[in-house]
Design a protein around this nucleic acid. Sequence first.
DNA 1: CTGTTAGCGCCTTCAA
DNA 2: TTGAAGGCGCTAACAG
Lengths: 350, 350
Amino acid sequence: MDELAVAGHRVTLIDVANRAGVSPATVSRVLNNNYPVAASTRERVVEAVQHFDYVLNVHAGALVHARSGILGIVVADVSDPFFSEIVRGAQDVAEAAGHLTMICSSGADPRQELAYLTLLRNHRADAVLLVGAGSEQPELQAALARQADGIARQGSRLVLVGRPAPVGTDAASVVELDNHRSGALIGEHLAGLGHRRIRYLAGPTGTTTTSARLAGFLEGARAGGVLRSGVEVVHGPQNRDTGRRLVRRALEDGAVFSAVAASNDLMAIGALVALREAGLRVPDDVSVVGIDDVPVAADVTPGLSTVHLPLSELGAAAAELALTAASALVQPALPAYLVIRESTARPPAA
Amino acid sequence: MDELAVAGHRVTLIDVANRAGVSPATVSRVLNNNYPVAASTRERVVEAVQHFDYVLNVHAGALVHARSGILGIVVADVSDPFFSEIVRGAQDVAEAAGHLTMICSSGADPRQELAYLTLLRNHRADAVLLVGAGSEQPELQAALARQADGIARQGSRLVLVGRPAPVGTDAASVVELDNHRSGALIGEHLAGLGHRRIRYLAGPTGTTTTSARLAGFLEGARAGGVLRSGVEVVHGPQNRDTGRRLVRRALEDGAVFSAVAASNDLMAIGALVALREAGLRVPDDVSVVGIDDVPVAADVTPGLSTVHLPLSELGAAAAELALTAASALVQPALPAYLVIRESTARPPAA
DNA sequence: CTGTTAGCGCCTTCAA
DNA sequence: TTGAAGGCGCTAACAG
């Protein structure tokens, strides 16, 4: 018995080769199917492979090829539908290209984000997607630019998804998301309905997405006749509980507003909850609008008016770019458009 | 100039060692911080590392240690909140343990699932989590058992999350999810309210979760006085659109029922939509209940009555088990309990 | 505290 | 069509 597969011994290519009575090179050729091998030889090899239930060791191969078959994805939070939709789109493409995805959740912390980029570099990811809002702080931008260069030097590729390229490098590709226009769309929408006092629920300060959406909103609102003094901007993490808390507090403080514009759908849903808890009707008493059009937006009651963003397509486009593009590119934003459901209406007659 | 970092040349430990004027071993010790190194030496090494922006190659290390620092996770769909909550819990633990997660979406296809297990074996994942319903087909169960043995033979560990261990192996750990009881809870709840004609929206046939939840439901309902003939069971993929379609069709067919019991929340939400579209009120005309208590369940209107399952805790427990347990274990289910919101009530007086 | 020496498991010329 | 040999980049003894 040539039972090399006994407990303790790790079976390698050599074990398989010995059992099949061929050289390791031949086994490699059969397994990678990249070189002619006589049918009878191949058969013996296959038998031996099955006998040992042998699977190749990617690490050994990666050392030789300097390719790992890994697509790295860095998001703030996998369980946030904004990100999970993007991830889904990216994974479909990655899978089709024979890549496995390594997903990292940074908790929207830029330092954590940088740490994950290094980890992904350690793993020699063939490409890395960095998804969502980025910090506007110059040092952090510079650090990111450095990582981009490092990734490029490794022969790998960085793609920024929904955030602008950091200054100081041309090594990163970008797949844009039209945050400014999204903000403008909801600003115009509310202004057009006649709202003049609006509560804007912004994301964390100092991030690219927060700034772009807010700037767009203010422009859109002003174009529609809303005074700057008619917009009250409050900041916080872009989740449901924050949306709820910010609106509840506004209500407690006796703030007056006929509409809540949230910088994303989760905050808008939180706003819906807070308003309901306060006994206010949407949209009769207060209108609510979000951005993203995550799947739930259609299922809450009243259905949430929002801006549709092509999330899974965005992820797919990014993965495509990451895995195939020859050099750094900027892919313009796919179209964003307003989806009017039941949460917005004219303000109540004062 | 010792510019070894010129385009083309991949910088390695050796380059760093040369620049710092030390041996490769010393650089390794500094980088891994696992051995005493003189402060002055360390300083020179650090300088050289920064100079080259050098990052270790995990693959080389993995070859030596036979450890990769990877936790593999196989789910049906990352963008389904049931899975993404579990993933989040698992990731938190994995990160704390210094592991990166490799996430694979099988689309609920058992063959795809097996293929991913092999891929994860290729990558020498330190542990693998297989999450959610499994096939009941004997061949597939056997194939899974074989993979479990293979994984164990590699010195790695397989943890089944929310599905029973396949027969024919003792190499897999299990973190249970009380699917049977969850079904029973909603069965008893609807029966207790007085419902006698119920539409049960089951998952795909031939999967462990579908069977367990359905069996539990039938038992719970019967215990509460519902005749077997009072329950109509229909099957389909467990997503929102299927829930909507199944209920819409039932309505079109003139089926009579005062309650819809869905085998998960997404289907229940689909049911809510279909009922609303048909002009029926929930819970006045029809009650709706789900299972899982995904975050959205609280945000739809009316709030969805459901069974709370500790999803992120489940993921965390699984990762814990995967990364630390000495041998295969079975961890009993964390408690599941009914959450009564606004979607269930007594049936309308006939 | 630091250097030397073997590999880890596989792929890829180069010869035969 | 197959085998032999060197090396991918790093770490872990073992000396010194």
